[in-house]
Write a protein that binds this DNA or RNA. Structure first.
Length: 515
RNA sequence: GGUCCGUUCGUCUAGGGGUUAGGACGUAUCCCUUUCACGGAUAAGACACGAGUUCGAUUCUCGUACGGACUACCA
């Protein structure tokens, strides 16, 4: 019988999600939406020692920002399988561990962490390695080596114990992975992983399998770092007798560092100057702030598009995909096998592409929000904060930027009176002729009212012609006098927007400063 | 070390037994343009290596090299 597709994103709230985690969430979401299935968010907080305040809220906020909405789970209205936080499901796991112990697939182990650590160190010193497995469990302290009485006594005593999975001695596990094909592993290479910790909490392996079963998950889409433990998970399903409803696996390629090798980590962002997180994050312990894509001015659509094509691509040469297009075209079969090196440069291009799709007024609204947060906001004249003004600014600047905020950052002359003038242009082009041109132009402007863009141009050309000079040589000078800068928006349009009074004032000021 | 995964321009990728191996980012040059951009055009730039299968392999198989993940009472 065809089951309804149900997938989950199951992060651990140990810090902010980075772009790799966001991509995993996205792929789960795309797949669920395309298949008409469910997508749920489950919080895997079985390690109480790694709890980080705020991390869970961060995850929810990041998903919402990116329009990756689970239809079930923490932060999204829960659902029929609540609770969706593993710490709140704690009591359920014990029942399942007991089943495994009863069926002989798991056993109590009483070795302390220190004892095992010593064994590991020892093995390392001998250039070998220690694993709790079929060979070594016979000589360690557990319910296999202990008599039933001894074991019960220890349990009754309240001695600390863990429950370990008993890996079969012989055989192979075959894992069918949608991305990678069949992966075969000898069970003898696996070790007896802890399923149930001495603090009464399950480990990831147990909780993940039990919850996926209970929540009727059909596809496990997760990062490649889980591939090595996937055979264990298969064995777990088998031991529980759940193999018929075992989810299909799809292990996603890793996101790699832009420089060198290795998987992208939280540190790389600060080191290389680009965000690795969707949103800003302040570490609650150190106060350290890591920057996010949202705060850097990326649109969520651009962000989603850019992470989606890092490891997945449909046939053809399309690069830009709306969320709906991605939902339509996504397929796990077309996810790459190899890891993708993250390229921070290309992210800017993606944002630019999405910026181009926005209307002037939409841009003006975003720009307005940005300007309000500027320290010099109060110095800006009121009329230049108005949307109609900003709309024209955006119209003039939109082709020149990757981000809305750059409109403000790159073109301060729309908001402030220039105080200094680009030295490279002045030193090269400011001379007696230039002064004469600006002087004459200023005079003719003073006789005009309501000057339009093409009139500014006409007048400037006429001014130069009257002086027997070529206008082309002096346009740069005019630009610098008006804006202070050597590059920027279409000059005469800029002047028209600013208005004749401002233009005259700026020319006077410049003449004063430069001559 | 062991287990597993991977390898097409610098990067993201399309392709796939016979192709001038395509696109995008970035880089360079040119055109457009009074600037800066946008846009357009052009250029440089890749099938890791060695065998095998085959008339033919970048594509299939096997090795080698290189890279990566995992190897906790973390997820």
């Amino acid at each position: 019988m065809e089951r309804k597709v149900r997938v989950r994103f199951a992060p651990s709230p140990t810090g902010p999600l980075h772009i790799g985690g966001m991509r995993t969430a996205l792929y789960n979401y795309l797949f669920a939406r395309q298949q008409g299935g469910d997508f749920l968010l489950r919080i895997e907080d079985t390690d109480q020692g790694r709890f980080v305040p705020g991390a869970e809220d961060y995850i929810i906020e990041a998903l919402k920002w990116c329009n990756i909405s689970p239809n079930e789970g923490i932060g999204f209205g829960d659902g029929p399988h609540a609770p969706y936080r593993q710490s709140a499901r704690k009591i359920m796991y014990r029942e399942y561990v007991d089943k495994l112990i009863e069926s002989g697939n798991a056993y109590y182990a009483f070795d302390t962490a220190e004892e095992l650590e010593a064994l590991r160190k020892n093995a390392e010193a001998n250039k070998s390695s220690f694993a709790y497995n079929a060979n070594t469990r016979k000589s360690l302290i557990n319910s296999i080596t202990l008599t039933t009485e001894e074991c019960e006594k220890k349990l009754k005593n309240g001695d600390h114990f863990v429950v370990r999975f008993k890996i079969p001695e012989l055989g192979q596990v075959m894992l069918k992975d949608i991305v990678r094909g069949d992966v075969v592993v000898e069970v003898s290479s696996l070790d007896d992983k802890v399923l149930f910790k001495s603090d009464g909490m399950p480990t990831y392996h147990l909780a993940n399998v039990v919850d996926d079963y209970l929540m009727q998950i059909t596809h496990v889409i997760r990062g490649e770092e889980w591939l090595p433990s996937a055979p264990l998970h298969v064995l777990l399903y088998r031991s529980f007798g759940w193999e018929q409803v075992m989810p299909q696996f799809a292990h996603l390629p890793l996101l790699l560092k832009p420089d060198g090798n290795g998987k992208l980590s939280k540190r790389d962002g600060d080191r290389l100057g680009f965000p690795v997180f969707p949103l800003n994050w302040t570490d609650p312990f150190t106060g350290e702030v890591s920057s996010g894509y949202r705060e850097r001015g990326y649109s969520p659509e651009a962000f989603a598009n850019m992470i989606a094509v890092l490891g997945w691509h449909p046939t053809g040469e399309q690069e830009l995909f709306s969320m709906d297009e991605m939902i339509k075209q996504f397929s796990l079969e077309r996810v790459h096998k190899a890891g993708a090196k993250f390229d921070p440069e290309k992210t800017k291009w993606f944002n630019q592409q999405y910026l181009k799709k926005q209307t002037d007024i939409e841009l003006a609204q975003s720009l307005s929000q940005y300007i309000e947060k500027q320290p010099k906001y109060s110095c800006i004249e009121e009329s230049r904060k108005e949307l109609v003004f900003l709309e024209t600014v955006c119209k003039l600047m939109r082709e020149k930027v990757h981000f809305v905020h750059e409109i403000f950052d790159m073109a301060p002359y729309f908001f402030f009176e220039p105080q200094s003038y680009d030295e490279s242009v002045i030193s090269k082009k400011w001379n007696d002729d230039a002064e004469k041109v600006i002087q004459t132009y200023l005079q003719s402007l003073q006789t005009e009212t309501e000057v339009k863009s093409n009139r500014y141009e006409e007048l400037f050309k006429a001014t130069c012609a009257d002086l027997n000079l070529k206008d082309g040589q002096f346009v740069q000078i005019l630009r610098v006098c008006i804006t202070g800068m050597s590059g920027g928006a279409a000059l005469y349009d800029t002047m028209a927007l600013l208005g004749n009074d401002i233009v005259i004032a700026r020319l006077k000021f410049a003449l004063n400063k430069l001559s």
